[in-house]
Simulated assay, not measured.
Amino acid sequence: MKKVAYLFLFCAIGFSSRAQTAKPEDVASMDAILTALYDVISGPAGEKRDWERMKSLFIPEGRLIPSGKNQQGDLVYRWWSVDEYIQTNGPALERSGFYETEIGRRVEEYGTIAHVFSTYETRRSASDKEPFMRGINSIQLLNDGKRWWIVSVMWMGENPQFPLPDKYLRK
């Protein structure tokens, strides 16, 4: 039993020494870190995003995982580090404009971990009346006693086979 406790302590020390410093207001609560996540990827066409801020929200090994079905109906997904997500999607978000807002949330929390189903709508411009996409972000969070961290974000866009259930459209 003591070996497990020492191993955990060692990992926690290693974790904190490799992590980026975040704005305290971005990680002070579960609501704050989710607001920061949506804020950092959103903005008008031509506006550079604060990718260092995004990195500071995640544990060093954090992952972003889009999932869905291809035209043949097969499950497809990607497994990106935060840097890979930024390299792959950052230019398009900045070029085209992208505003993602949370429209519903369901939270399960136990001890130092939390799981959030965060329903979103996405627009190209903040003034667009209708979203061009909706879906659910499945977000795993970790609280080290000092702040919240994003461990992973897995998402799936709404489609005719999987319309968003009413229970996920409410905060």
Results as ranks from 00 to 15, higher is better:
residue 42 S to T: 07
residue 6 Y to A: 13
residue 51 W to V: 02
residue 108 E to C: 08
residue 18 R to C: 01
residue 124 R to N: 08
residue 127 S to E: 14
residue 158 E to R: 01
residue 61 E to C: 00
residue 33 I to V: 12
residue 20 Q to T: 06
residue 126 A to T: 06
residue 158 E to Y: 03
residue 150 I to A: 02
residue 43 G to T: 05
residue 78 R to L: 12
residue 20 Q to R: 10
residue 62 G to N: 03
residue 2 K to W: 08
residue 94 E to D: 08
residue 51 W to H: 02
residue 100 E to M: 01
residue 105 R to P: 04
residue 122 T to L: 04
residue 68 G to H: 04
residue 95 R to W: 11
residue 38 Y to N: 14
residue 117 F to A: 12
residue 122 T to E: 09
residue 7 L to N: 12
residue 12 A to W: 12
residue 82 V to M: 00
residue 84 E to I: 14
residue 73 G to K: 10
residue 68 G to I: 05
residue 67 S to T: 04
residue 15 F to C: 10
residue 45 A to D: 07
residue 26 D to Q: 05
residue 29 S to A: 10
residue 6 Y to G: 11
residue 58 F to S: 04
residue 54 M to S: 01
residue 132 F to Y: 11
residue 126 A to S: 15
residue 79 W to I: 06
residue 157 G to V: 04
residue 101 T to H: 00
residue 143 N to E: 01
residue 74 D to R: 13
residue 153 V to K: 00
residue 132 F to D: 13
residue 158 E to T: 00
residue 90 G to L: 03
residue 6 Y to W: 15
residue 158 E to C: 10
residue 92 A to N: 13
residue 149 W to C: 02
residue 23 K to V: 09
residue 88 T to A: 13
residue 135 G to L: 14
residue 62 G to I: 02
residue 32 A to W: 05
residue 83 D to E: 07
residue 162 F to Q: 07
residue 54 M to I: 06
residue 128 D to L: 05
residue 45 A to S: 15
residue 61 E to G: 04
residue 155 W to L: 09
residue 7 L to V: 11
residue 116 V to R: 00
